[in-house]
Design a protein around this nucleic acid. Structure first.
Length: 883
RNA sequence: GCGGGCGUAGCUCAGGGGUAGAGCGCGGCGCUUACACCGCCGGUGUCGGAGGUUCGAAUCCUUCCGCCCGCACCA
């Protein structure tokens, strides 16, 4: 017997263990289905599960379970990411917090990296344990880590071959430099933040003039130490006479040319721009055009370096800023200072202002790789769902910049480049090969030094869809599952990750990494705010699972996921799905109490009872809808559809209507109803399983004893539209309307539920009479009636009257009736019907409508109008009787 | 500046040329062969504004207003 209440925690642990033990998560070619593969976006290995993961994983697990049940050979490839900067920062922070005065640098590289591995060993299991609590069903036996042996080999192979193809190169150019982390970061890791600052107008003396100045405006006065020119617009009359002249850089004394360049915007600032090629991306270009030197005046920590006058050396950039402004003011060279709100690039990890910084870094020629990646989406080899994300993808891909892939970190894949004594570089997959290459180059052995830098984390994750399947080896899995079927992820990493996988996948595999990219929204709090630790509005999915169960969380997330929208997540929705799970549980208990069992001989296509024929059709419709919804990535439709089927259709109507049959005299009807109820519930458990795996598996086991094995590997129901019986549908539709109308009328007239009424009919057709007869017990029960009088009788006095189709039903309520209330009710009803009726008439009187609207629309309206007219007549009669 | 999204019931949102929907909340009533994490009944909308296309617009187009998100922008 099922327990009176459902206890998710206990059931979930047991069921999950059973799944894992059964090997159900591994791909199985047994049923011969086509491969279906999803690679899990690898979470940070030392992270923990947040709501974003919960949504992302629930969607993937639902897809995987759905296709597994449909007989596809499914692989959900799990794994974790080493998350270079993030993880290194965590460990550094721990070192700092531990009070040890051994920082990363003091410790040395080897010891520090060992420390990170230690941390990974200690906390690396957290997120995969949490995934189990959510019910994720990936093939754990294939779990990978971006820094494990195999994936590291893939990284080496990828780097070396791109290098040898000229698509990776080393270059000295400006990068976004994080002075706190002391590493370069890519354009994508830059956050533009609006800040209140100042615009300093500085006067530079014109060489050889009589006290003439040229005024430039800047938000970063400290960079003036590196100025090597001033640009004015060629057409700007104010400065025309200065073209080709020189200014003397204050505080430094450098002679810097005034050049004409279109970059200068006469509208902005003073129209004259100081040019600091080593510290500004635009200036770098201007400098290059005019042959201006790039003088770097900062060091890695953001302090003024030895290229600057001695007075400023060693000062932090912001201290230097103040000092320089003060010194210039003292010289009378500050024309004015304006308050100025502007955007300043910040590091997305460190949160500190970034400096454009001139260094040697490794770059990947993204422009070349992007060509095919753009084409693949243009021609539909890969499609985004929802579609509009393709614009975002194109926009970025078409303007893509060289990708800076080196990082001055220690945690990550060290770049496989070795330098000879003269700086000659040898890029090989191993030191041995590098030595060989060096020997070939120099003619003898030389000491080699390995590049210190590591690769951007996204370089290794960019290989994920094929590296996890075994590449560079030609494994059977790679052959079978690449290209993968769908990638499920958030829009925030389209550039970081999706784009890179597209480029690298196409380059190395010659084929897109995935056919579909399903982009879901962000999980926000119930008020729509982004969840963040600082705001304190973070919802912990594990807490939700503890409180409501994993199925409730999953259903709530799926039900709130409409394409192209963020998910606002509050406890209310989870609660309603927790209630839903309970409802399903209770309905199952009811079946159990009524000895409803699966009957192998049961044929859903040949039920005798209209009620059973009807529910078979209803579950078939629900099944078709769910199948279509999941196939179309419309998870809210899938979840909501089953919610309504289970709650409204199956529990509120079917079970209620079935009660008389289950307790009745007719043994055949009873047996059929038991079998039908069980069969329909079994179908429902199948349909619900991908979304709510735990409770469905438990009920499948406890109620039916897992015929044919566990639900996780059961066949998806084959429910065809041929199971829908139009006649039964019409009959039950009538029944529901009839009971509903009587209930509504009773409530509106304040007839106490305990009052058992007699029902008289007037004008009922033979069919209606037959239906009344067939469903007598159910109607008596659900409409709270004493008897039904089948003979056509005039409406007794003191009755409330309900009109259903051609028939009027009268319910004498004796002295209970409140005439004015009944009048009011009828009038309201009449008003509604008349409004619709009149609207229809108007339409039909419009010759254009009749002439131009499709015939079936006109015909439908005519039929509807006829019904309305009949109903209206009967209602008017009823009203007249009262008056 | 460029691109995208959103504006529908008190709240959160589905829908998307042919009778305005759901959940929650709210109000009333509780007799029931599982379920109070329940049952039954109920109300509410100028579908952001204005034009247009159409026999017909919440739905398509134009435009305006309001909100949000990317990207770009350190004079």
């Amino acid at each position: 017997m099922l327990d009176k209440t459902y206890r998710p925690a206990e059931v979930e642990a047991r069921i999950y263990a059973a799944w894992e033990a059964s090997g159900a998560f591994a791909p199985s070619a047994e049923r011969g289905g086509a491969p279906y593969c999803i690679v899990l976006p690898p979470p940070n290995v030392t992270g923990s599960l947040h709501m974003g993961h919960a949504l992302d994983h629930t969607i993937q697990d639902t897809l995987i379970r759905f296709h597994r049940m449909r007989g596809r050979e499914t692989l959900w490839q799990p794994g974790t990411d080493h998350a270079g900067i993030a993880t290194q920062m965590v460990v550094e922070r721990q070192l700092a917090a531990s009070g040890s005065n051994l920082g990363r640098r003091e410790m040395g590289r080897a010891a520090f990296v060992a420390k990170v591995w230690e941390w990974k060993a200690q906390s690396g299991g957290t997120i995969v344990r949490q995934m189990r609590r959510l019910g994720d069903s990936p093939d754990w036996s294939r779990e990978r880590f971006t820094m494990d042996e195999g994936l590291s080999r893939a990284v080496l192979r990828a780097f070396v071959s791109l290098y040898k193809a000229g698509l990776i190169y080393k270059d000295k150019r400006l990068v976004n430099w994080d002075t706190q982390l002391q590493t370069a970061v890519s354009d994508l890791e830059v956050q533009q933040i609006e800040v209140d600052g100042h615009l300093w107008h500085l006067k530079y003396p014109i060489e050889g003039s009589d006290g003439e100045f040229i005024t430039v405006a800047t938000t970063r006065p400290e960079t003036m130490l590196g100025d090597t020119g001033i640009a004015v617009h060629p057409d700007d009359e104010r400065y025309r006479h200065l073209h080709g002249r020189f200014a003397i850089l204050p505080l430094v004394g450098r002679r810097i040319p005034i050049v004409a360049d279109e970059y200068s915007d006469p509208e902005k600032g003073t129209g004259a721009v100081k040019i600091t090629p080593a510290h500004d991306f635009n200036d770098f270009e201007v400098g290059r055009r005019h042959g201006l030197a790039a003088i770097s005046v900062l060091d890695e920590l953001g302090r003024i370096n030895a290229n600057a006058p001695e007075a400023y050396r060693g000062l932090d950039r912001f201290v230097a800023r103040k000092r320089i402004v003060a010194d210039l003011e003292a010289l009378g060279l500050v024309e004015r200072i304006e308050k100025y709100r502007h955007v300043v690039p910040h590091g997305d990890r460190s949160g500190t202002p970034l400096e454009p910084f001139l260094t040697d870094q490794w770059y990947c020629d993204a422009k070349t790789l992007a060509k095919e990646a753009i084409a693949a989406v243009e021609d539909g080899r890969t499609r985004f769902i929802p579609r509009q994300w393709e614009n975002t993808y194109f926009e970025w891909m078409r303007n893509i910049q060289p990708w800076c892939i080196s990082r001055q970190l220690w945690w990550g894949h060290q770049i496989p480049a070795w330098y000879g004594p003269d700086g000659q570089v040898f890029v090989e997959e191993s030191e041995t090969e590098a030595r060989a290459a060096a020997r070939a180059h120099y003619g003898h052995d030389v000491p080699l030094e390995r590049d210190e830098d590591v690769l951007d984390t996204w370089f290794s994750s960019g290989l994920w869809p094929f590296s996890t399947l075994g590449w560079p080896d030609e494994t059977p899995e790679l052959k079978r599952f690449y290209p993968t079927t769908v990638l499920v992820t958030g829009f925030d990493i389209i550039f970081f990750w999706v784009a890179r996988m597209m480029m690298l996948g196409l380059y190395f595999m010659g084929e897109v990494p995935f056919r579909d990219v399903y982009i879901h929204g962000l999980v926000r709090d119930e008020r729509g705010a982004k969840m963040s630790k600082t705001k304190g509005n973070v919802v912990d999915p594990l807490q939700i699972i503890d409180d409501y169960g994993a199925d409730a969380l999953r259903l709530a997330l799926l039900a709130s996921t409409s394409q192209g929208r963020d998910v606002k997540f509050g406890p209310a929705r989870v609660e309603s799905y927790r209630n839903f799970v309970t409802k399903l549980w209770n309905a199952s208990r009811f079946l159990q109490m009524n000895e409803a069992r699966l009957d192998p001989a049961f044929d859903p296509a040949h039920c005798r009872e209209p009620l059973n024929r009807w529910i078979v059709g209803e579950v078939a419709k629900a099944g078709l809808a769910v199948t279509g919804a999941i196939e179309g990535y419309r998870f809210n439709d899938a979840a909501l559809g089953l919610y309504h089927f289970v709650w409204d259709t199956y529990c509120d109507w079917y079970i209620e209507l079935a009660k008389p049959l289950l307790g009745g005299e007719d043994a055949e009807a009873r047996a059929e109803t038991r079998a039908t109820a069980a069969w329909v519930l079994a179908q429902t458990l199948h349909l619900l399983h991908p979304m709510a795996p735990f409770v469905t598996e438990e009920l499948w086991d406890k109620l039916f004893g897992q015929p044919g094995g566990m639900l996780i590997v059961a066949d998806w129901p084959h429910l065809g539209a041929e199971l829908v019986d139009a006649e039964a549908e019409a009959e039950l539709g009538w029944l529901v309307r009839t009971i509903g109308s009587i209930r509504a009328a009773r409530t509106e007239l304040n007839v106490p539920p305990s009052a058992r009424l007699t029902l008289y009919q007037h004008g009922a057709s033979a069919e209606t009479l037959a239906r009344l007869e067939r469903h007598r017990e159910a109607i008596l029960r659900l409409a709270r009636l004493e008897t039904i009088v089948m003979e056509d009788r005039p409406v007794p006095p003191q009755s409330l009257v309900v009109v259903v189709d051609e028939a009027s039903f009268a319910l004498p309520v004796g002295h209970v009736i409140d005439v004015t209330a009944e009048k009011r009710r009828l009038e309201k009803e009449i008003g509604k019907v008349r409004a619709e009726h009149d609207k229809g008439i108007q339409k039909l009187e419009n010759p254009d409508f009749v002439a131009r609207a499709p015939v079936e629309v006109v015909e439908q309206l005519r039929e509807r109008l006829e019904e309305l007219r009949a109903t209206l007549d009967r209602l008017l009669q009823a009203l007249k009787r009262i008056d």
